[in-house]
């Protein structure tokens, strides 16, 4: 064993955790470790040390808040997908949670980890965009609330300061009567890294699309809202014409890449097809 072990802290409260961070900036904040541990010991974090967030009860679990829910950042995907409140009111998030890795991964991986890790392929992220979630960060300057759309800044880069802890994710109440949908397109049926993801929150009033929020993942360095596609269909009846307009606008708005998982051309085409399908679903919800 290496003679100089990095310090490791397992705080029980947010305040204690913030104290460690203030004293030792650069501590690596860890939760489910399902990404950090990949590649094992050859990628050990720097000797700055580790801050384990999973023992902080106040940032774990799901609570009612102002018509919506507040989800602790250290809440696992298993807890999310099993939560009756999440399933009833945020079914798109429950769907996404159920499609992240296998059971064993869902038992460990956390919603906060998915956000802080900031991968373009994070499965929960388009859903959070479409739900207009906000993120609460806690640090030496107190707490601040950041819209999720402003949190994820770039490829594996977030607005979280080095001395802050991602504490909660706030899910505001969705619009009354909203249809939520999440579609993940991966290379196989399960345990897959996404090629394309689309999340939608939408409402129909008087036979026309009223509210429409569309977000996509794995088609850009960060998950993106698709305002052009939303505008293209808003105000129209939720029929084929609206769906095709939204799909085309979605595909036109992104410039996906070729990588080891898929091709740019396929991603753009599938994005168009899936947006079209989800918008059509507003007209005939399942």
């Amino acid at each position: 064993m290496s003679p100089s072990l990095p310090p490791a802290f397992s705080p029980r409260s947010l305040a204690e955790a913030c104290g460690y961070l203030a004293a030792e900036p650069g501590l690596v904040r860890v939760a489910g470790c399902t990404d950090l541990m990949v590649a094992g010991q050859d990628r050990r974090p720097p000797a700055a040390g580790l801050l384990d967030l999973t023992g902080i009860a106040e940032i774990r679990g799901i609570q009612e808040a102002a018509g919506g829910l507040t989800v602790g950042a250290a809440t696992t995907f298993s807890e999310l997908r099993r939560s009756p409140a999440v399933r009833a009111r945020f079914p798109a998030l429950a769907d996404a949670a159920a499609q992240i890795g296998g059971w064993q991964i869902q038992n460990r991986a956390t919603l906060g980890g998915n956000l802080a890790n900031a991968s373009p392929a994070g499965d929960s992220l388009p859903v959070l965009l479409a739900l207009e979630a906000t993120v609460v960060a806690a640090g030496p300057r107190g707490q601040r609330e950041i819209p999720y759309g402003e949190f994820h800044l770039g490829y594996r880069r977030t607005a979280l300061a080095p001395d802050e802890i991602l504490a909660w994710i706030r899910l505001p109440a969705p619009p009354a009567g909203a249809v939520q949908a999440f579609r993940k397109v991966g290379p196989r049926a399960a345990q897959a890294i996404s090629k394309v993801m689309v999340a939608m929150v939408g409402t129909v009033a008087d036979g026309r699309i009223a509210e429409l929020r569309l977000a996509a993942g794995s088609v850009a360095p960060i998950p993106v809202r698709l305002p052009g596609a939303e505008a293209a269909a808003r105000g129209l009846p939720p029929d084929r014409q609206a769906a095709e307009r939204a799909g085309r606008a979605a595909a036109a708005a992104v410039t996906p890449i070729d990588d080891v998982r898929s091709t740019a051309a396929y991603r753009a085409w599938v994005l168009e097809r899936v947006v079209r399908r989800l918008v059509l679903g507003l007209g005939s919800p399942p």
Binding site: G102, P187, R188, A189, A190, Q191, A192, I193, V260, R261
Partner: peptide, 16 residues
């Protein structure tokens, strides 16, 4: 070889 991991060299799971 670009996909030298089981995350990128994909084989069928029980759900496939």
């Amino acid at each position: 070889y670009l996909n030298d991991r089981l995350a990128t060299y994909i084989i069928p799971t029980a759900q496939d």
